[in-house]
């Protein structure tokens, strides 16, 4: 395609790349004067270039992005292989059928289903116990009498066979009550905190992260929570962030490299060179292939001079 037939906005883009001839520059200037579309783009492009320019610290940011992406990809490839959809459907149907049969059997055994009893049954030892209690004028607890598989002799039935079944109202709070007072499971809390952080509500997210650490100190979400909290606290409260990173690093695991990097950054900012060098040394020794390693080597070299 001939350059002279380029669209004015194409000319503008080539101008940003310093690829225009004098004649094309003249054409572009004329277009900017008369066309709102070209004028707008001539203002939008430099502004976007400013927003996406390389900044100090981008090397570390890129290393973190790469490390995070590699971790996600590894986790994806380690996930169990999903069965083909037809096979899954059949297995789900079989499971549902088994559950249905088990449920019906349980209901029948528990006396929930009406049973054909043309004649009143002969009093058993269990009903005798109940009757005696009634006669004594005592208030009956909520009891259910387990129906015997076969009619046992009256004299061998003991009170142990009378099993109290707690009613839902007595045994557990209502679902609405649970929602009102329960902060949720560790994974729910973690998901809620992440969601808030993505919406830019980082302060609220940090509160949930801290709540998670308080409530579920042994959950598997603790590691990523400490990391997220460390990143949030690092600019304003480096000592608290350092505590989170140290706790994360002491636990080992896949996030130790991130924690060591955070420790080295904070220690450098706080002027604690020995702690920074210690963290970088550990990082290089334990994670030589980590994306942080290259930056860590450069920093260690710089610090040694």
């Amino acid at each position: 395609m001939s350059i002279s037939h380029l669209d004015p906005t194409d000319l503008l883009i080539r101008c940003r790349r310093e690829q225009l001839t004098l004649d094309e520059q003249r054409r572009l200037s004329e277009s900017i004067e008369v066309s709102l579309e070209v004028r707008l783009m001539s203002q939008i492009l430099p502004e976007l270039e400013r927003e996406s320019r390389v900044r100090p610290g981008d090397d570390v940011l890129l290393a973190r992005i790469n490390a995070g992406a590699l971790a996600v990809i590894r986790a994806q490839s380690a996930a169990p292989v999903r069965l083909p959809i037809k096979r899954r459907t059949v297995m789900l149907l079989v499971a549902a059928a088994v559950l249905l049969i088990a449920g019906l059997a349980g209901a029948w055994l528990g006396g929930a289903l009406p049973r054909k009893t043309p004649a009143p049954p002969a009093p058993t030892a269990q009903s005798k116990v109940v009757d005696n209690a009634k006669q004594a004028g005592k208030k009956q607890p909520s009891l259910s009498v387990a129906p015997p598989q076969s009619e046992p002799p009256a004299d061998v039935v003991s009170l142990d066979s009378i099993v109290p079944i707690p009613t839902p109202a007595a045994s557990a709070p209502r679902a609405s009550e649970t929602r009102a007072v329960s902060p949720g499971t560790a994974s729910e809390l973690f998901a809620r905190a992440n969601s808030l952080r993505r919406q830019g509500r980082v302060g609220e997210a940090a509160v949930l992260y801290e709540l998670l650490l308080d409530l579920y100190p042994n959950s598997r979400e603790v590691g990523p929570t400490r990391l997220a909290l460390g990143k949030y606290l690092q600019p304003k409260q480096p000592e608290r962030a350092l505590a989170q990173y140290r706790a994360l690093a002491s636990g080992g695991g896949a996030l130790r490299a991130e924690a060591l990097w955070g420790i080295s950054e904070i220690a450098t900012n706080l002027g604690d060179r020995s702690a920074a060098q210690q963290a970088l040394g550990d990082l290089l020794r334990e994670f030589p292939d980590s994306p942080y390693a290259e930056v860590a080597r450069a920093r260690a070299l710089h610090d040694s001079h």
């Binding site: 940011l61 996600v72 952080r197």
Partner: peptide, 29 residues
């Protein structure tokens, strides 16, 4: 390619957006 991805993300959601890192990682994946 990640520098290019980061540049795209900054242009689409804004250079100072707090989610630049998360979105760039999502893009890389």
């Amino acid at each position: 390619v990640t520098p290019n991805i980061l540049r795209v993300v900054r242009r689409v959601i804004g250079g100072s957006h707090p989610d630049v890192e998360d979105v760039a990682q999502e893009c890389a994946v």
